[in-house]
Nucleic acid binder design. Structure first.
Lengths: 223, 223
DNA sequence: CGCTTTGTTGAAAAGAGTCAACCCCGGTGG
DNA sequence: CCACCGGGGTTGACTCTTTTCAACAAAGCG
């Protein structure tokens, strides 16, 4: 981990970056020089608080644009790290600004921002007042939904992130996530093997998301 | 509760609004017609998720500008409710837009946005990975800090919000908040009586914020 | 092929939630 | 003036979820 990163380049020119798992795309607090539309792969956004707490604050998939949130800020608000082999475009900040002058593009960008902030709000609610099972169900449905929104009509998800990343994102521990996945599986809602996950019963997952009691950590599993 | 609100007016004209505790300044999802700089009083921002979960997402004090976040959105992202007698200015959305054309004002607005999003991120961290005592300590320090930032050099806070609001904001229950306040008091960190709170040992509170073990719910209090 | 990282599972402990009783205070109306 | 009422707050006992600690299995990588 802790690859050279991209920001080491003296001047940012348009182009492409290729990252391997663990390599850093951009670092929180560093000057925001570019946005990085994701072409392939996946990344996580990590926020580090003033006291040094770290938390995964979002996941980036193809089509997402890490660094775009900072378009009018002097520095990146989060660090972004590749979860797997990843290719991103590099759009210098001036180009972003220029693009945002175009009304159509600006509208699109605002739309992205809105979806993002709504997501953040839902996450806050989830972490603040939902039980572990609900949070995880929500994430799975969300990931599946995003995949669908990108045109992939497949109920099989490839989790690019570790259990630890998921746990951090959801405000849980990795053990809890692991247990919950097992329980979802034995409840017939999903199948999981390592990073490969298939949603078997989407409605059931949605029910779990809505109803805390539906699948708990203890209690009788499905025999 | 559920007063007529301000948005019932057919057209928004510049001016003032006066709200009593419980009255609604603006409602999530309704068209964003104005921003409302707070002159006196205090309000809470409430986000309602798609499944109907509600959570206090922030508090507004004099100097804050509810509705400003929505300056480029079609609708308010949260509902804002007065916690006490409150007076706000009314700045129609067009005026906001016009003002934002001014470079100086825009910089100021961006600054506000940045502080806001940083706050949200810290809140997410807090709720996601800190213990109850840490969260509450954080809130108290934050409130005191805001008060100081507004030039009030007084260690006495007047909590305009109920324990329930605090609990919702921190992702806890009101009982937990109450207990914790009592414990902080018996630990000599604060004095509380109803809505009046004095921070006695700021460094101690900061220590609690940093260290989970410092003040717990059970365990021996200070005799 | 062994080593490290990642994931699973179990048992025990702790933190926070739930349920319920009670207090305090301000307001209202007799 | 006082009794009653109700919202907000406190506190206690108990329950339950989640964390913590720990051992172990599986997979990826040199």
């Amino acid at each position: 981990m802790g690859g050279a990163g991209v920001t080491s380049a003296p001047g940012i020119a348009p182009g492409r970056v290729h990252l391997q798992a663990g390599e850093i795309l951009c670092e929180q607090g560093r000057p925001a020089l570019a946005a990085y539309p994701v072409r392939t792969g996946g990344l996580k956004g990590v926020y580090e608080s003033q006291l040094g707490w770290r938390q995964v604050s979002r996941f980036f998939m193809p089509g997402d644009v890490p660094g775009l949130e900072a378009h009018d800020a002097p520095a990146y608000g989060i660090s972004v790290v590749a979860l797997q082999d990843t290719e991103c475009c590099v759009v210098p900040i001036e180009a972003v600004q220029a693009g945002l002058a175009n009304a159509e593009l600006r509208a699109a960008a605002l739309d992205i921002f809105r979806r993002q902030t709504r997501r953040q709000s839902e996450l806050l609610i989830a972490i603040g007042s939902m039980k572990a099972a609900q949070r995880l169900a929500m994430l799975l449905l969300d990931l599946a939904g995003e995949q669908a929104r990108r045109g992939v009509a497949d109920s099989v998800l490839t989790l690019t992130m570790t259990r630890n990343d998921i746990a951090s994102y959801l405000g849980l521990t990795l053990e809890t996530v692991s247990r919950l996945l097992s329980r979802f599986r034995s409840a017939g809602l999903i199948t999981v093997r390592h990073r490969l996950l298939r949603i078997v019963d989407e409605a059931g997952l949605a029910a779990v998301h809505a109803d805390p009691e539906r699948v708990t950590l203890r209690g009788p599993g499905v025999d």
